[in-house]
Amino acid sequence: MTSIRSIDRFEYRAPGSLDETLDILKTSGTDAKVLAGGTDLILQMKQGLIRPSLVVDVKKVPELNRLEWDEVGGLHVGAVVPLNKLATFPAILERYNILAQACSVIGSAQVRNRGTMAGNICNAAPSADSAPALLCLGAGAVVASSNGARSIDLNDFFVAPGETAIGDGELMVEIEVPTPPPHSAGCYIRHTTREEMDIAVVGVASFLTLSPQDKTLKEARIALGAVAPTPVRAHGAEAFLTGKSVTPDIIEEVAEKAAAEANPISDLRGSAEYRRELVRVLVRRTLRESCSELGLIE
């Protein structure tokens, strides 16, 4: 149950550089909040879930507006780049299909004009659509504080619902995503009751890398959304699949294993049992689609 009310008075600052931002965060204490797209933050403020005394709008920080890709350095998505911009960025469309799929279903078109991928993962909802795709792609989060910058492997990023590994005084700067290896393919599929403007009941991303010599899978990654306190990898299912030649039976078995690894809850959007079933269905579908893209199955 929510209750919308007026937002308490707060100080608003919009620094123009990364250093200035980090200085502010260093001295501001824990009730400062960083504003990027604001699509989650403002709602939480209206619901009275958080009452920051200071809101630091980082949209004007040049370092956070970076959107670049090169073969060696991979993709760099600054923390304030809106989702809709990602969905039209050529390198993402050409090389990160899985990410484009995930980013194009978050919220609504209006939300995607403001909301950011960094915000999507900083909000740390178990259902965050970009998280399974980023987990599969081996992404990392670059965070900075006045003491310097560090990179957090996304596998270590999500701590609990709404909680991340970003420390006090630290700022999310960008998400870095390595260039997918040759002979790889992946996809993200989610289930929602409504076609748009909805939250995943379950979201699944699969990402496969092929050994072209023997047509076995060099690497398999499967990540699940909305079936555990955080977005998670299905390590058991991945291990089972790695090194194998794909057959329909194997896909079935992997889907079964992933469903067994999921740890869903029952809530307004679906029962635990239904979610587990959806993991089975969506793992199967994402694997089939990835395999088909790799030319492994029809």
């Binding site: 149950m1 009751t193 409504r194 307004l268």
Partner: peptide, 18 residues
């Protein structure tokens, strides 16, 4: 007896795409 889905996200009405 208490309404749980009191937002337009969880009180789901169809959009044009449905």
């Amino acid at each position: 007896g208490k309404v749980q889905n009191d937002t337009l996200l969880d009180y789901r009405m169809p959009t044009a795409t449905d």
